[in-house]
């Protein structure tokens, strides 16, 4: 295995290469810019946030209000409890950028394993896994989340589990489709004729060559997971309250949208721009991959 471990891992390398090529797609560039902006915000939240996101300053302050006690301007105003919206949005980025990638990675781990097994081995493995996947996918997603979270309670862990459970079958379907195609390639036959194990074939011969569509799908899916986390927060099923979370912010301020629209609009802009970033990146990657 040394030769393979010596060579840079193909997926990491190709991801880098794709990003370098993205320079040719302005859509992809904008997407990357939006994502990097929020990643930066999330990483440096403690430095960037002017206030403690939980501190109560002054209720119902409109954007641009001067807060006398701390001597700062509340650029985005405060919410009904008097917490600084700018700081909450900044910390909210951290929340979403922890849970969304975590949930997506878990879903991918499960989906890829199931998809490879189903697509490469075929036979009853395939039948059983596909049927289970079909059944899960036939649930309207949000109904599924609501039932799971209403039953087991709202916590970060449960959200990750629920998202994994609901997304893995979709990923499995894609991986399975790709594996079904790739397993007929001659290089797979060649590795079979030298007696490679199924594990080796799946991991070295099939998975790396399926990465293109999977990376694009992962971007779209990340965007969708972000929306899901937002929606759960908005429905009051998200993370337990004091933690700043964009969907939750909209939920709390819903009743006051008439008088204080900033309380709802700002988190909505935040979540939309981040999702847009991922969708644009996916489009850019797709465009670039079609080009050569």
């Amino acid at each position: 295995m040394t030769d393979i471990s010596k060579a840079p891992t193909p997926s990491a390398l190709s991801a880098l290469r794709s990003i370098a090529i993205l320079r040719e797609s302005w859509i992809g560039m904008i997407g990357t810019g939006l994502i990097l902006f929020w990643v930066f915000v999330a990483l440096f939240a403690p430095l960037l946030a002017p206030h403690d996101p939980l501190a109560i300053l002054q209720p119902f302050a409109k954007p641009g209000t001067f807060h006398v006690k701390s001597g700062t301007t509340l650029w985005l105003g405060t919410d009904n409890l008097g917490r600084d919206i700018l700081s909450r949005v900044i910390w909210g980025a951290r929340t979403v950028l922890i849970y969304a990638p975590l949930a997506t990675v878990c879903a991918y781990a499960v989906g890829i394993i199931m998809g490879l097994a189903a697509g490469y081995h075929r036979g009853w493995w395939d039948t059983v896994l596909s049927r289970i996947g079909d059944i899960i996918l036939s649930f309207p997603v949000l109904v599924l989340y609501i039932i799971v979270i209403a039953t087991f309670g709202a916590s970060g862990f449960n959200i990750v589990i629920a998202i994994t459970f609901a997304s893995a079958p979709g990923i499995m379907r894609i991986v399975r489709g790709l594996a079904l195609d790739l397993r007929n390639r001659d290089y797979v036959a060649a590795s079979q004729t030298r007696g490679e194990t199924s594990f080796y074939i799946m991991v070295v011969e099939i998975l790396p060559n399926a990465r293109g569509p999977l990376i694009v799908d992962a971007c779209v899916r990340l965007g969708y997971v972000i929306i899901t986390i937002g929606v759960l927060g908005f429905l009051g099923l998200g993370l337990p309250p004091p933690k700043p979370d964009w969907g939750g912010m909209v939920n709390e301020a819903r009743g006051m949208a008439m008088i204080f629209p900033h309380m709802t609009i700002i988190p909505c802009v935040a979540i939309s721009s981040l999702v847009l970033g991922f969708n644009l990146l996916a489009d850019g990657l797709r465009e670039v991959s079609l080009r050569d």
């Binding site: 030769d3 393979i4 060579a7 193909p10 190709s14 390639r185 001659d186 290089y187 060649a190 590795s191 070295v204 011969e205 790396p208 060559n209 990465r211």
Partner: peptide
């Protein structure tokens, strides 16, 4: 189709 596109020839 005969070579794995992700690996170098040498590997």
């Amino acid at each position: 189709d005969t070579l794995n596109p992700s690996l170098s020839i040498g590997a």
